[in-house]
Amino acid sequence: MRGRGFPRPRNGAKGEKPVNFDALFGDLAQHTVDGLSKGAIYALVALGYTLVYGVLRLINFAHSEIFMVGTFAILGTWSLLGVADNPPIGMAIVYLLIGLVVGALASGATALTVERVAYRRLRRMNAPPLIFLITAIGLSLVLVELFALWMAGFFSGRGFTENRLVIGIPPLLKQETVLSVAGADITNVQIIMVVAALVMLYGLDQFINRTRYGRGVRAVAQSPDTAALMGVHQDRVIMLVFVLGGLMAGAAALLWNMRYGITKFDIGFVVGLKAFTAAVLGGIGNLRGALLGGLLLGVIEVYAATLTRSTWEDVAAFVVLVVVLIFRPTGLLGESLGKARA
């Protein structure tokens, strides 16, 4: 029955056009909406990569698992509350808000743990950057296997058993078309996703630019030593950026559960990879760049999948990434968390 490991290109049915421009341009507005809502999750996860990179100049490869933990924590809470399919709208909103809090807390706590376990001690010992890469990958593997072996079973209500299967999450909001713009049917969930991403970014942007804590983050990003001399507590700032990244990943986890209604122990891998790509595309270290990169990546993928097949979406995404990096090596908006304008 199964034939893993021997992928082979196939030609489709006769008469199938290899590149179908009609499909893309006939319904461009719809595909754009689909892409933006897909990219919203990339954008929120990308913020976590970008924040940590902006301050530490390190890629936190365990961030994908911070997102994955969020999806499971929300699933567990919902099943504990006995959420059934499509509850009345009032209850759905309550559940979603509870989900947001739980997801943010779980992901935030995981992010803190990651910082504590995989980063802090090494940082004190001035380990070279490569070491952080390995510890983060190691921790990420530990988290993935932890969930595969025990936690996924636990959160899906089957006790601490091995569960590597797709786990369904009850749909809370019935996806309905609420708006039609230029031929595109926009659903309630799609609106929530894109608006949520924009609101979260705006909040984060304001936090970094306007508050005392934010100033600390910018100071450490610009020059850790000078910031320390000026009385900025570096460890606290670093913990803060990890937590902020975790909160965003938790929010992304909620949107994920709402939109896709499934999770799995290794769900973080692809999302994390795409979000990291989005962060690089927009300019890693740049908050607005992460949002732009995420949304753009989502749109490119949907365009490419429509134009040819879904198989080609990754190819298109990375081709665009490479082309952008050739002309703008620091991404579309450049690295700028440390700069005055953030």
Partner: peptide, 24 residues
């Protein structure tokens, strides 16, 4: 009877493009 086709990939989660092809 075969009318329309799409190829997805392993680990794919978002099927928006496939769905718009089906709708069409």
């Amino acid at each position: 009877l075969a009318g329309g086709t799409d190829q997805v990939q392993e680990k794919q989660v978002n099927f928006a493009a496939t769905i718009s092809k089906i709708k069409a």
